[in-house]
């Protein structure tokens, strides 16, 4: 695999900060589905307040990386540190409680709960006791959701479900928001709305790790970009530097 070494080392510069500044620090993750070796030694960090994206074609291991970090799919080897603590073998709820809001691929709806119930059941102060996000604030960020507050989640449109999933994650007052396929399958207008919201979240200082296919939007939005090919990161560096190397996008994502 042609790994551009200079790009691999570049993000090390901001990472000289103490490990306490790192929300997620996954190293050498090897994850399998049965006999099939999906992740081949993934190293991924997210710093406090940082907006990063994970790009790559379908089936390259992006979702598996997120699931391995969250303990939803156990890595066979490697370590996961969250907020500086070793959480490699911790249960998912304990990992999440360190301050992670998760919006899964497919949105993870509770079809039998109403919009209000989906939000209320998730409510929790952040790991430091912060209560910045409550029902009122989430509803003001998502007026569409506010209009549908008493509807069942199953009856929402795809875009509304995605907004509900993001709002639900915010109700947990996270330090880091993880969005898997943030805008997949949504109409262009709704996508724009979602990106606007994610920008707004970024401005509040919450770190974001986002997986999506809209490379141009991601490069604009994110401080740092990562590209994944066949279970390995082939690029990890400032989005600016990726912008200057369109051939990387061409080769690894096909743009």
């Amino acid at each position: 695999m042609a790994v551009p070494r200079e790009q691999m080392t570049e993000p090390m510069a901001p990472q000289t900060a103490t490990t306490g500044e790192r929300i997620v620090e996954a190293s050498e993750l090897h994850t399998y589905y049965g006999d099939s070796h999906v992740l081949h030694g993934v190293n991924l960090t997210v710093q406090r307040g940082e907006t990063v994206c994970l790009m790559g074609r379908n089936g390259m291991g992006k979702t598996t990386t997120l699931r391995s970090i969250l303990g939803l799919t156990r890595p066979r080897s490697g370590t996961v540190r969250i907020m500086g603590q070793d959480m490699t073998r911790a249960e998912t709820h304990a990992i999440i409680r360190q301050g992670i809001g998760y919006v899964p691929e497919g949105r993870g709806m509770f079809p039998n709960l109403s919009v209000r119930e989906s939000l209320v059941m998730a409510a929790r102060p952040g790991p430091d006791g912060r209560r910045d996000w409550d029902l009122d604030r989430v509803l003001s960020v998502f007026p569409r959701i506010a209009e549908r507050i008493n509807h069942m989640s199953a009856n929402l449109s795809g875009g509304e479900q995605q907004m509900l999933a993001i709002g639900r994650a915010l109700m947990t007052n996270p330090e880091l928001l993880i969005l898997d396929e943030a805008t997949e399958g949504l109409a262009p207008l709704i996508r724009k709305e979602i990106w606007t919201v994610i920008r707004g979240i970024k401005e509040t200082g919450i770190a974001t790790l986002v997986v999506d296919k809209n490379v141009n939007v991601l490069i604009d939005l994110c401080d740092r970009s990562m590209i994944m090919v066949k279970g390995e990161l082939v690029f990890d560096g400032p989005s600016e530097s990726l912008r200057k190397q369109p051939e990387l996008l061409q080769t690894h994502i096909g743009l």
């Binding site: 993870g108 989906s118 994650a169």
Partner: peptide, 20 residues
């Protein structure tokens, strides 16, 4: 609500930080 949510999507309940 958590109990009902757990009936329809167990994994998501844990992914919200609740010990299912």
């Amino acid at each position: 609500m958590i109990v009902r949510g757990g009936a329809s999507n167990r994994e998501m309940v844990s992914a919200l930080g609740i010990n299912i």
